[in-house]
């Protein structure tokens, strides 16, 4: 039986709001922060913490996507194509969880994150070149959105989709294995590999991570790991933070989001290396 005081619940809502704000701006679910907090501060077993994290990821994803889909920031076509392999990876990850040594997976993942972080940081230092594609869409995987920060309509077309789809499987597998949404992989893949503007990449990632989190959450729910009241308070906070964060995402400068994301990936990589040693 897990006992949490009223102040503890209040703290969960506030922390959830912070995670929701961060997640909606950067396209991640915040699992890398929620799981350690619940384990280290509230002494919640890791499986339960992962389950709570997955529930709050669904809340963030649904809230953010419900706004960004209409604004054209989240690309539903790109999202559904990548979700296909992401969902498959998510199931494979959840099934492999009991067979694969998690430490080796964590180590391999963290080593992969360093060049990604460096690449995103270097990209954020360069001046953003606004694509001036014609408004016609020759590829079904492309889109246009209005960016208030630059005051222009930005059009893009996704490149190297087969490779991105492959990485999406890997992102899904991480969701099942480690209880993450997978946004920490999806955003750099879409931004660096597919040349999708960071705001559209973050919004599309947020749109997708709900599916991988739901696929894993169903398995955790059936195993009885979901703690309903804690999940509610954390999700309540993330919902509030998500709606605040979306206003920020829409107005923020793209290069600042990229810098912030590269720092986040670096922190995640360091944390995972220590965890796997």
């Amino acid at each position: 039986m897990i006992h949490i005081t009223t102040i503890g619940y209040f703290f969960l809502v506030v922390f959830g709001a912070f995670i929701g704000l961060l997640g909606s701006v950067m396209g991640v679910g915040g699992g890398v922060f929620i799981v350690p907090l619940l384990v280290l501060v509230f002494n919640i077993p890791i499986q339960n913490a992962i389950a709570v994290s997955l529930i709050s990821i669904i809340a963030t994803s649904s809230a953010v996507a419900s706004v960004n889909v209409e604004k054209g920031l989240a690309n539903v076509r790109l999202g559904i194509v990548m979700e296909l392999t992401m969902a498959a990876g998510s199931i494979a990850g959840a099934l492999l969880m009991s067979h694969l040594p998690t430490k080796i997976v964590s180590l391999a993942f963290s080593i992969f994150l360093f060049p990604v972080s460096a690449s995103m940081y270097l990209k954020s230092r360069k001046k953003i070149v606004v694509s001036n594609f014609k408004q016609e869409r020759t590829s079904p995987i492309g889109g246009t959105f209005f960016d208030p920060a630059s005051g222009q309509n930005i059009s893009y077309k996704a490149e190297r989709m087969p490779l991105a789809i492959l990485f999406s499987f890997f992102a899904g597998a991480l969701s099942g294995l480690l209880g993450l949404g997978g946004g920490v992989v999806q955003v750099p893949v879409m931004n660096i590999l597919c040349k999708i503007p960071i705001k559209a990449a973050a919004a599309t990632s947020n749109f997708m991570i709900g599916v991988s989190a739901a696929a894993s959450a169903l398995i955790f729910y059936k195993k009885g790991y979901v703690i309903s009241d804690i999940s509610f308070y954390v999700s309540l906070g993330t919902l509030f933070g998500s709606f605040l964060g979306m206003k920020f995402l829409y107005k923020a400068k793209s290069e600042k989001i990229q810098t912030l994301f590269s720092v986040l990936i670096f922190i995640v990589a360091i944390r995972m290396i220590f965890k796997s040693l």
């Binding site: 739901a214 729910y221 009241d229």
Partner: peptide
């Protein structure tokens, strides 16, 4: 009421599934 609380969580988990059906 624990059941209502659980149903709320289930509704949230099924939200992305409903979204995929709509897509």
């Amino acid at each position: 009421n624990g059941f209502l609380l659980s149903y709320g969580i289930i509704a949230l988990v099924f939200t992305p599934i409903m979204r995929v059906i709509m897509l």
